[in-house]
């Protein structure tokens, strides 16, 4: 078991005829073919107006609905440009796709407000936008992360950032801690899936034995996560918060990474997590170590 992505996941790419969309679809297909031989995970793509074409053996469809009908897809990876991303997410949800992974960076915040309203009426789950995606090592990856840095294992990894997720996976792998599933939830103010949703899934997943969560400055999602952990999570949790040295009022790359009105600092988030027993790494070099310590503390 794992969360979100399993052996029955069949993925299409919305925006597959774009350069980036095709490149990452190829990489995801390569990864799936390397780690398992039973069937193809990446089954095609959608670009309105380009249905009927084939790009590098991927069949292209005009709509998500048509792609589902022809391929049995139940997940999508979205690479369409920011102005059209919200509509692509809504189309996927409307067509019955269950897992929507939006990689696109730069989606207007109010577009995401519209998306959230819409998704609330469906059973679809959105990861992102502005995220690296989801990987269940050894099963499939839906996203832009390099597959080989993730090894199969029992740590559930949740992160707001891309390269910092790779860094964490790398450190975990170096001390023999693979991941059950790793998810980049994205650095935007409004995202589809938050820490709490995934903490709950990992807590309930029998194949996940420990959880690592990586947050950053801005908003209070990490503090809400801390409250949730206190009441609902029994598994060992380690954490890291990026932006301890970030100045207030300045956006640090991610649209959501901003300390406003003195709130959303790294210090307050680290304190909140530590207060509920999460082992918080002070240095980004110690994320792996923190996970190890959390596991030892819980078991010993």
């Amino acid at each position: 078991m794992s969360i979100l992505v399993n052996k029955d996941t069949r993925v299409i790419c919305q925006g597959i005829t774009g350069k980036t969309g095709l490149f990452h679809s190829q990489k995801c297909r390569e990864y799936a073919r390397e780690v398992r031989t039973d069937s193809d995970v990446f089954v095609g793509g959608v670009t309105p107006g380009k249905g009927g074409q084939t790009v590098d053996d991927f069949p292209v469809f005009n709509s998500v609905a048509e792609a589902i009908e022809k391929t049995g897809a139940n997940a999508t990876m979205i690479f369409v440009p920011p102005p059209f991303c919200a509509d692509a997410i809504i189309e996927a949800a409307d067509s019955g796709i269950q897992l929507i992974v939006a990689i696109t960076e730069g989606v207007p915040t109010l577009d995401m407000v519209r998306v959230s309203h819409y998704l609330a009426k469906t059973s679809a789950r959105l990861i992102g936008p502005n995220c690296p995606g989801v990987i269940t090592p050894g099963v499939a990856k839906i996203g832009i992360m390099p597959g080989y840095i993730h090894t199969p294992g029992t740590v559930g990894l949740i992160s707001k950032s891309g390269t910092l997720t790779y860094e964490a996976a790398w450190q975990l792998g170096n001390i023999g801690l693979g991941q059950s599933t790793a998810i980049g939830i994205g650095g935007d103010p409004i995202i589809g899936t938050n820490f709490i949703d995934l903490l709950e899934m990992f807590e309930n997943d029998p194949d996940t034995e420990a959880i690592m969560m990586i947050g950053e400055i801005g908003g209070d999602a990490e503090i809400q996560a801390a409250n949730y952990i206190k009441d609902h999570v029994t598994k060992p949790v380690a954490g890291f918060i990026a932006g301890q040295t970030a100045p207030p009022g300045k956006r640090m790359g991610h649209a959501g990474a901003i300390i406003s009105g003195g709130a959303g600092t790294a210090a307050e988030k680290m304190d909140a997590l530590e207060a509920v027993g999460v082992v918080v790494a002070q240095s980004p070099a110690d994320m792996g170590k923190a996970m190890q310590e959390a596991i030892t503390r819980k078991n010993g």
């Binding site: 390269t163 650095g187 950053e216 040295t245 970030a246 980004p284």
Partner: peptide, 18 residues
């Protein structure tokens, strides 16, 4: 000079930490 916003923020933190 870093690739990725999260890693870039963390690199600042790392420098301060040392």
């Amino acid at each position: 000079l870093v690739n990725g916003a999260g890693l870039a923020m963390s690199t600042m933190d790392l420098i301060k930490h040392h």
